[in-house]
Design a protein around this nucleic acid. Structure first.
Length: 302
DNA sequence: TAGGCCATCTGGTCCT
DNA sequence: AGGACCAGATGGCCTA
């Protein structure tokens, strides 16, 4: 009688392990004894109702009169309760799938997108928040930050793997700009690491960083963006809104020679032609996929 | 093996 | 009444 639901399509391309099949096994086990607690609850709640004549089965009425503390529901009511629970589960599942789809969409429009190294949900939200903050800062000041500052803003509060992924996306060698005078390098990585480990992603840039002493992110961020309120405190506290200035520069092009010479950021994005060979994680920036954004951005480009 | 992340089920609450 | 939303619980998979 119990049937498996259709596997959700959103999971089929996920680099995360697909747990649908295994979860369905659990679901099957649960469904074998569906909504027991709910049934019990309703049985208790329905006591008065049943007493008023709602009981359909005389045999069950007899059981109750014999002194059973466990109030029984009629089979029909029981079936309805179970059916409602199953339907609610399906709705909840679909709701979560749509939420995940929205998160997938968000992953594709944050500055770094990888088909193979998928950002976790929390990292996606953090990166999106930082990105909005960075763009707002550009709009507010009308100035373009250097790429380092931009990346540092994006990486605020992110885990090390995500930070390195973003740095890799933007063709930044973290060793080249996060280094001690003595030559020892540190990962581009905030103090967040001290209390949060994310072991999922491979490190794109830098190696062996786990064993190195970690500096507070702010200690090597002397930029204007980091002198300004961080993306974390004011926004999280809900006391400030990101600055908005629609007359500001919306898209900036990095003109200095270097690995990221052709890299655009803002609402135009890198098309890192040389990255594919060097990047084992199929990392790319997203601009080429979003003509609509390109069109929206045109007024700001000239 | 521990920790991170995930999907799913579940019951409570709020809203229509 | 029923649906949407939410948070807790549970268990599986993966990686260091």
């Amino acid at each position: 009688m119990l049937t498996f639901d259709e596997p959700p399509s959103v999971q089929t391309s996920s680099p995360f392990r697909t747990s649908w099949a295994t979860n369905q096994l659990n679901v099957k086990c649960v469904k074998a004894e569906p909504c027991r607690a709910l049934v019990d609850t309703l049985e208790s709640r329905g006591e008065d109702e049943e007493r008023d004549g709602g009981l359909e089965d005389e045999e069950e009425r007899g059981v109750r009169r014999r002194g059973s503390q466990k109030k029984k529901l009629s089979q029909g009511r029981l079936d309805r309760v179970r059916l409602r629970r199953i339907e609610a589960n399906t709705r909840e599942r679909n709701r979560m799938h749509s939420l995940n789809s929205a998160l997938d969409s968000l992953r594709k429009v944050v500055p770094c997108y990888s088909n193979t190294q998928k950002l976790s949900k929390i990292e996606t939200l953090r990166l999106a928040k930082n990105y909005i903050w960075a763009l707002s800062e550009i709009l507010s000041t009308g100035k373009r930050p250097d790429l380092l500052t931009f990346v540092q803003t994006l990486c605020k509060g992110l885990s090390q793997p995500t930070t390195n992924l973003v740095a890799g996306c933007l063709q930044l060698n973290t060793r080249s700009f996060v280094s001690e005078p003595g030559g020892e390098s540190f990962p581009l990585y905030p103090a967040y690491h001290h209390h949060h480990h994310d072991h999922r992603g491979p490190e794109v840039v830098g190696s062996g960083s786990e064993d190195r002493p970690l500096r507070s992110f702010g200690s090597f961020c002397g930029s204007a963006l980091y002198d300004s309120p961080s993306p974390d405190s004011p926004l999280d506290a809900g006391t400030l809104s990101p600055p908005m200035n629609f007359n500001g520069i919306f898209s900036l092009k990095h003109e200095e020679p270097g690995d990221y010479r052709s890299c655009h950021y803002g609402l135009r994005y890198c098309s890192i032609s040389q990255s594919s060979s060097a990047d084992p994680y199929d990392i790319h920036l997203r601009g080429q996929f979003y003509q609509v954004q390109e069109d929206l951005n045109k007024p700001f480009l000239n």
